[in-house]
Write a protein that binds this DNA or RNA. Structure first.
Lengths: 198, 198
DNA sequence: TTAGCATTCCTAACACCGTTAACAATCCTG
DNA sequence: CAGGATTGTTAACGGTGTTAGGAATGCTAA
């Protein structure tokens, strides 16, 4: 009486092919271009079949979000386990995190909601140049004031990245963190500013 | 012969009402919910009229992107001009930047492509907890090893924010920056790790 | 073997979206 | 007042996510 089992297998086969196909489309055309109809076309089933396996389109995306986090966590763990010194562990995990993001752009974009609205548009925004100058100037002053060997352009990137990351993560996360956020910002600024005195 | 002028005025009136209406919709329902048809409905014109004033929907978004950057730059400038010491200037600009992002969420989201796919979904991703533990552990070890008064949770936020920000900004920006990115990451790590020795 | 039932699957639609072609109405110019 | 430019409309095209209803299939039990 392996009929139910076979049906279950076939069901999961379809589910798997949905996810595989979706992943292939995303790899070829990006998240924006992923549509239910395209998946249905590719797996040679009609559209409603997909809704027998996933409640939403978002449910499909969530499946990949989970996979992405699982993969990232594995790689973080692997990086950490190469060292026993906490500082080394942190360092290794930072590089692993970085590597993950760029080796698996599709995953990372989905996981942290990095869409498309500005990726292309950012190039045509002259105001960004003004911002660069605005922040670069005091950094240059700091470098020369401290006789630091630091590269101002490098410091500029560190500065903005930290700010943007802090904001992005907090916008996507829990509210009610006003105090914590302020302390994080302060913490970063201290680290950043003392970084010139070398 | 003020006819052309009047027409020009009326034209700009419509353009303004398009932007005003769009901004109102965004404020009430978010960027995701902004559509050409909704704007047309609200200004009591037909849809193609909007295309007489803006080439694309994206052109409307770009207008707001520009406004956002102009506003941000003004506030950065104002913050900077309160001090003459570069370190203080940087500090003030960091806080101004932060304030801008949260006082003008709509602008910031548009400017840096912070969409929606994960904002809600992130809460239902248990793998995030694992990530937290993974990174928090060595940080705690560092804190106790250095007899630091630093809050591990705070350091954790600083750490991840920096990474995320660096990645996000680079994903949206120019490629060919491999070396610079690595140096920024290294720079951040140094600052971050020496931050424990206080 | 066949009648009936459950599951699987598809057709077709709904309500949106951005975009545009073709046409009607308006208004100014000569 | 005729003609032409400007302005605005209707209606469509192709796309999206989603779902209701019914057809076809395959299994079960008489």
């Amino acid at each position: 009486m392996g009929i139910a089992e076979r049906r279950q297998r076939q069901r999961e086969g379809v589910r798997t092919s949905i996810l595989d196909t979706a992943w292939r489309i995303v790899g070829a055309e990006g998240w924006q271009s992923l549509s239910i109809r395209k998946i249905a076309d590719a797996i040679e089933y009609s559209v409603p079949v997909i809704y027998d396996h996933f409640e939403n389109k978002e449910a499909i995306l969530q499946e990949f979000t989970h996979r992405g986090f699982r993969l990232l966590n594995e790689q973080l763990k692997a990086a950490r386990d190469q060292f026993s010194d906490p500082a080394r562990q942190l360092e290794a995990m930072a590089y692993a995190y970085w590597r993950f993001a760029f080796d698996n752009k599709e995953y990372y974009q989905l996981m942290y909601g990095l869409g498309l609205p500005t990726c292309e548009a950012a190039k045509r925004v002259p105001e960004l140049a003004a911002q660069t100058d605005l922040i670069l100037e005091p950094i240059k002053a700091l470098v020369s004031a401290n006789d630091s060997k630091a590269d101002p352009f490098l410091k500029f990137h560190t500065f903005l990245s930290m700010l943007h990351g802090l904001i992005a993560i907090n916008m996507a996360g829990n509210p009610n963190r006003e105090e914590l956020n302020m302390m994080v910002l302060k913490d970063f600024l201290e680290s950043f500013l003392t970084g010139f005195k070398s």
